[in-house]
Design a protein around this nucleic acid. Structure first.
Length: 282
DNA sequence: ACCCAGGGGCAAG
DNA sequence: CTTGCCCATGGG
C-alpha cells in the first residue's frame, strides 16, 4: 500500500458521512475507510481538517464527498427556531451529502425497501461479489451495471437476499439497459419531471426516487421520507395536529426546510438513528 | 420468539 | 383520494 497524500477538508466529518446511511459499501480499515468511488479504489483517513487519500484520487474524493458544498450557508438556511434540527446539526456536524454514481445509487435504494441499513449493505456486497466486475487492487468488485443485472435471473438475484425486491431490480435494470430510460438525461429535467420519471420505474416510488435525486443527482432540496423521518416529523411537528397524508407531509417538508431540505433530512435521519442506538438522549 | 426494517403496488372502500 | 394488505428476509 502506497503512502496516502493529504488534501484539505474543512468542516467535513468522514465518519458521520459514511455511517449515515447514504452509501453502503465502505469498510473501516486501520483508522480510516476503504472503498470505491465509481470503479476507482480509494483509501481515506481523516486527521482534523485534513484527509489522507490514495495518491492520485484527491480530485475525485473532493467531488464525491461534496467538499465544495458550503455547509455554513446550508446550516444558515435552516429554520432558525428549530431546536430539533439545531441538535441534529450539532450532533452530525461535517456530514455531507455524497455524489454517488446514478445507477449504483438508484439500484441500491431499490434494494433498500423495508430493510435495515446493515442488511442493505449485505445485499449490496452480495450483488457486487456475484455480478460485479473485479477491480485490480480494489477492496471489492464494481457495482454491476444495468446490462449485467438485466440478464441475471430472478432466482440468482434472490440468492443475494433480495426477496420480493428481485423482480423490481431486474425490471428496472432491463428498462435502463434497453435505453427506455436514460438516467444521465434526467440531469437536464426539472425536479418534478425527474421525480415522475424515476417513479415510473419498477420498485421506485417517491421515497426511493427522492433518494436518487438527493444522493445521486445532487438535488439538495429532495426530501426522502422513510419510516424514521416520518416518525420524527409526526412526533415533533405534528403533535396534537391531524395526521397529514403522505403528500401533505412531503409538502410540509419542502415548505419548512427549504432549498437544502435534503441536508436537513439527512441530519435528522442520522441523529434519530444514533439516538435510537444509544438511548437516553431526547 | 418476536418485531420491524431508509417502500411499492395494487385492490378495495 | 385514502386505507389495507402482501410482498421476503434477517438484524436486534
Amino acid at each position: 500500500m502506497k503512502a496516502l497524500v493529504p488534501i484539505s477538508a474543512p468542516l467535513f466529518d468522514l465518519r458521520e458521512t459514511l455511517e449515515s446511511g447514504q452509501v453502503f459499501h465502505w469498510t473501516q480499515v486501520n483508522g480510516g475507510y476503504r472503498g470505491l468511488i465509481g470503479n476507482m479504489p480509494v483509501e481515506i483517513r481523516q486527521e482534523g481538517e485534513r484527509l489522507w487519500v490514495t495518491p492520485g484520487t484527491g480530485a475525485q474524493v473532493a467531488h464525491y464527498f461534496a467538499l465544495d458544498h458550503d455547509l455554513k450557508a446550508i446550516y444558515a438556511s435552516f429554520p432558525a427556531a428549530d431546536p430539533l434540527l439545531a441538535r441534529a446539526v450539532a450532533a452530525c456536524r461535517g456530514l455531507r451529502i455524497i455524489r454517488q454514481p446514478l445507477w449504483e445509487c438508484l439500484a441500491t435504494f431499490i434494494t433498500s425497501a423495508m430493510k435495515q441499513v446493515a442488511h442493505i449493505r449485505q445485499i449490496s456486497l452480495a450483488l457486487r461479489a456475484r455480478f460485479g466486475e473485479p477491480i485490480p487492487g480494489g477492496p471489492l468488485a464494481a457495482y454491476p451495471p444495468p446490462e449485467r443485472l438485466a440478464r441475471a435471473s430472478e432466482s440468482e438475484l434472490r440468492a443475494c437476499g433480495l426477496g420480493f425486491r428481485a423482480p423490481n431490480l431486474r425490471a428496472t435494470a432491463r428498462l435502463i439497459a434497453a435505453g427506455e430510460v436514460d438516467l444521465e438525461a434526467l440531469r437536464g429535467l426539472g425536479d418534478a419531471q425527474a421525480l415522475a420519471t424515476l417513479c415510473g420505474l419498477p420498485g421506485v416510488g417517491p421515497k426511493i426516487a427522492n433518494c436518487a435525486l438527493l444522493f445521486g443527482y445532487g438535488r439538495l432540496g429532495a426530501f426522502p421520507i422513510d419510516v424514521w423521518i416520518g416518525r420524527v416529523l409526526l412526533n415533533h411537528y405534528f403533535k396534537r395536529r391531524r395526521r397529514p397524508t403522505p403528500a401533505q407531509l412531503q409538502a410540509f417538508a419542502a415548505r419548512t426546510f427549504g432549498p437544502y431540505g435534503g441536508y436537513a433530512q439527512q441530519y435528522l435521519f442520522h441523529c434519530a438513528r444514533k439516538d435510537a442506538r444509544r438511548p437516553g438522549a431526547a
